[in-house]
Design a protein around this nucleic acid. Sequence first.
DNA 1: TTCTTAATTTATAATCATTATAATTTAATA
DNA 2: TATTAAATTATAATGATTATAAATTAAGAA
Lengths: 145, 145
Amino acid sequence: MTKTIEDFKKILQEKNIRLSHQRLKVLEYLVQNKTHPSVDDIYINLQKDLPSLSKATVYNTLNMLEEVGLVNVLTIEDNENHYEITSKNHGHFKCTSCKKIYDFTLDVEEIKSTDLADFEIKERDVYFRGLCPECLDSDQDSSDK
Amino acid sequence: MTKTIEDFKKILQEKNIRLSHQRLKVLEYLVQNKTHPSVDDIYINLQKDLPSLSKATVYNTLNMLEEVGLVNVLTIEDNENHYEITSKNHGHFKCTSCKKIYDFTLDVEEIKSTDLADFEIKERDVYFRGLCPECLDSDQDSSDK
DNA sequence: TTCTTAATTTATAATCATTATAATTTAATA
DNA sequence: TATTAAATTATAATGATTATAAATTAAGAA
Ligand SMILES: [Mn+2]
Ligand SMILES: [Mn+2]
Ligand SMILES: [Zn+2]
Ligand SMILES: [Zn+2]
């Protein structure tokens, strides 16, 4: 079910999109890091192996991957986008304390509203925000005697 | 149920927040325009009556109103925030063609996931994107003979 | 394998939303 | 009406993202 780099190579080749080293590295990063990274996260980490990498390339690659449907953009934060490999639909929870973005099981296709009978829905995002268990725990610690 | 400017005045006064002319105008704009406007929308329209209005004031006011819970910020778009008076929970649909943001009936409190049992959820946003009926109609027109 | 060339990457500048700063103005109270 | 802390304004600064143009490269042809 979960796609490998080889699967992605095949998909991009079928669309006549060149398999540049940079593009494959960005894809690999997203496949290996299911942390919903920002452009900066990706850029800083890939730079270790690719010192010549340009941030524009990371943007270009992510925009291209989004266009062909291989990656999904999260606008759960108001100042910075986050990215993930497109996968079975699920919801996202952002902890306002540690800033981590968690996946949670949810069939967003099941969310219905009669108001939308005549709308063509193409994307569905469910974003929750609050405190994650780790941060709730440490909150308690700090309020302990 | 739906609050008037007088209701808002009372709430702000109770919190010792000054009822400046600019703040009341921003609130009034949001009460009268249920269109999920951006800062620019609000700024451009209020400027007609308040030529000296500063965009920083619109930002300051909206941030303050969000902090006290009277307005809600939508991050449905990746480059610009949109605002609305806080109201009973509902979902948002953004038409990717005409850019309008529509409300739709949905009890977001009813969206549950066992994965979140130990999380403290404070905000819930449901964002759908696609084509609205008007844009679907005009699409059809343009494909007609 | 080497050559060719259009596509990609890079470095850099530009844009745009948002926030910060500091001087000016004002709401609320005495 | 006078006082003053808070709000507004003008402006600069920041930070994410996009645009541009020159240098590099992937992929097919020879
Ligand atoms: Mn996810
Ligand atoms: Mn709404
Ligand atoms: Zn946390
Ligand atoms: Zn539309």
